[in-house]
Nucleic acid binder design. Structure first.
Lengths: 328, 328
DNA sequence: CAACCAGGTGCTGCCATAGCT
DNA sequence: CAGCTATGGCAGCACCTGGTT
């Protein structure tokens, strides 16, 4: 900036005014300064400005694996909210191999240009219970587990199960098998708990849940197994759409019709791009809203008192044609 | 930091030494300072440090829509490369509505804490020809179009077509129809050009390409149309796997067998999670390698002369069972 | 209205110093 | 006194604000 000032024959302050579009600059001067900035390839120093006004206009986001469906949609939702607040995202991916602790994630983020910290906890962190957020900076954990000292936000991975189970109950199903994701997944834990509680609330004994890995192939395996071993089942709740899609393929390969013989539901509403004529009954989450909630709690407006809350955003039941009344 | 120094009764420099794990600090002093830092919730100022040493340890990434398949994989590849260099990513999503110009993207990124700028140009920017990168900072555009003054990196969206077409030619196909993505997409333009050139090189007149929107449903529509209107076609090249998957469904719904009656190929190798027993012959790109190339050209090691290059990373043909010799 | 000067933001490299062996 | 360690002072990185000319 000093260079520009010297080259244009004005003071630094004038350059500053021009750079920030402030008034009280002679039009000729402004143009001359702008020309000089162009010429020298002037780039305002983010460091200087940040140091000066103590804000970074960026929010930190720490995830362990960008490619997981949940994380992508998290980035999207937050990116959209951040843009509305004229804010960037500083993204850090934790090594997939190293242990993922909240303290470590916080330590890493704290050294970066962030006005708030968002940590995606898609599997339980070893130090969740004992974790204390850094004072003086907003911290939000994206997870279903509530925390006494940290605001947590997530789509309601428990409630989505209730929505789907109620739908199946209303159709008349009661023998509803469950195909879950890997058991270390937090989403899985809550989706399964919802399934189980829904059954128990109706005094139906849940049959053993099957464990997949979120992929269609694992859903296929599970569906195959169920088709061959469970004659009484009338519906399958797969914990995501991909596995549901695999399960449907398996059922059909086993000679069972969907939904006439077996109803199938999934979660996420993620198939549309990949499958033509998507017929799967599922739950859709409003990930942009989640992103907005996450962002706004991580970077509270000045004056907002950052009370610790636990926000669970309900999903929306999408009824298509993979569900019907059970075979008699 | 001054606070910590005062509270611990030492100088700022000593605190600095402790914070950075430098030697020449008495063990007792070190512990006392660390305790004080803990107590006061000390967080090193990113702004101060950056201002000091003129580097941000972050690379800027600008994309127009995070959720697009290509962009997700871009983030993933770059995140992985960035982590290897102990670097964060500053992500900016351009508004989906506003016009996407390279100058605007650069302007936005330049005001952020970035040591390099990466711009994903999945559709042609209006100012591509005239764009001049900001001097003094590495700029990489992720796109197939080469630029005289900017390094460009991309998966080889032209070469992937040649790989697939050669595979089909070897099997004996020559009536190969094309289902493309939206024509504004740069990937689409190059994939289609590859298809067309491959045919013309063999003196086969390309039949009119169909235009989809990357979704399985659009592939289905196109597949349906071809099944009903083209008796001579023996193979379909769909410009991504999702449309290929839709096309296969359409062909089967029209009573055609795949691959016995019609062979189908796609690009991206993106179906595995969504479809059980994925049988689609396709091309897989090494997105981590692309991420590494992009990153390393955007943030060149000190001393590297930033020559402008155009890097195209070849894909790998994955032969499965959606292709076979044509029906006689 | 336009421009200048001084001061403050957090951090660290260089140098100085003090106290040792 | 050379050679070492532990510590502190100073300056400057780029920017902006407020007071002053």
């Amino acid at each position: 900036m000093a260079d520009v000032a010297r080259a244009a024959g004005v003071s630094q302050q004038t350059v500053s005014r021009v750079a920030n579009g402030l008034p009280n600059v002679n039009e000729q001067t402004r143009q001359r300064v702008q020309a000089t900035m162009q010429e020298l390839g002037f780039r305002p120093s983010y460091a200087g400005r940040s140091l000066r006004d103590g804000r970074y206009h960026s929010v930190g986001l720490c995830v362990n694996d960008v490619t997981k469906f949940g994380n992508l949609s998290m980035i999207d939702g937050i990116a959209s909210a951040a843009r509305e607040h004229n804010c960037a995202i500083t993204l850090v991916e934790m090594s997939k191999t190293e242990e993922f602790s909240l303290a470590e994630a916080t330590r890493r983020m704290a050294a970066l240009p962030v006005d708030g910290i968002i940590i995606g906890m898609s599997r339980m962190a070893p130090d969740f219970e004992t974790f204390d957020p850094l004072p003086g900076i907003g911290t939000v954990i994206v997870t279903m587990y509530a925390h006494p000292r940290v605001t947590t936000v997530d789509s309601d991975h428990y409630g989505c199960s209730l929505l789907l189970m109620d739908h199946l109950f209303e159709l008349g199903h009661d023998q509803i098998r469950y195909i879950g994701g890997p058991s270390f997944s937090v989403d899985e834990q809550f989706r399964r708990a919802g399934w189980q509680d829904a059954l128990e609330r109706k005094h139906i004994k849940p049959q053993a849940p099957l464990e997949g890995d979120w992929s269609a192939n694992s859903g296929y395996e599970a569906g195959r197994y169920l088709a061959e071993h469970d004659r009484t089942m009338t519906a399958i709740y797969a914990a995501n759409d991909q596995m549901a899609n695999g399960a449907i393929a398996a059922l059909r390969d086993s000679g069972l019709r969907v939904p006439e013989d077996v109803s199938v539901v999934g979660v996420d509403d993620s198939l549309d791009d990949f499958v033509a004529h998507n017929e799967l009954t599922t739950v859709r989450f409003d990930l942009h809203q989640r992103g907005r909630e996450v962002f706004e709690h991580a970077v509270p407006e000045a004056g907002t008192v950052g009370k610790t809350v636990a926000i669970r955003i309900p999903g929306q039941l999408i009824i298509r044609h993979s569900t019907a009344i059970p075979r008699s």
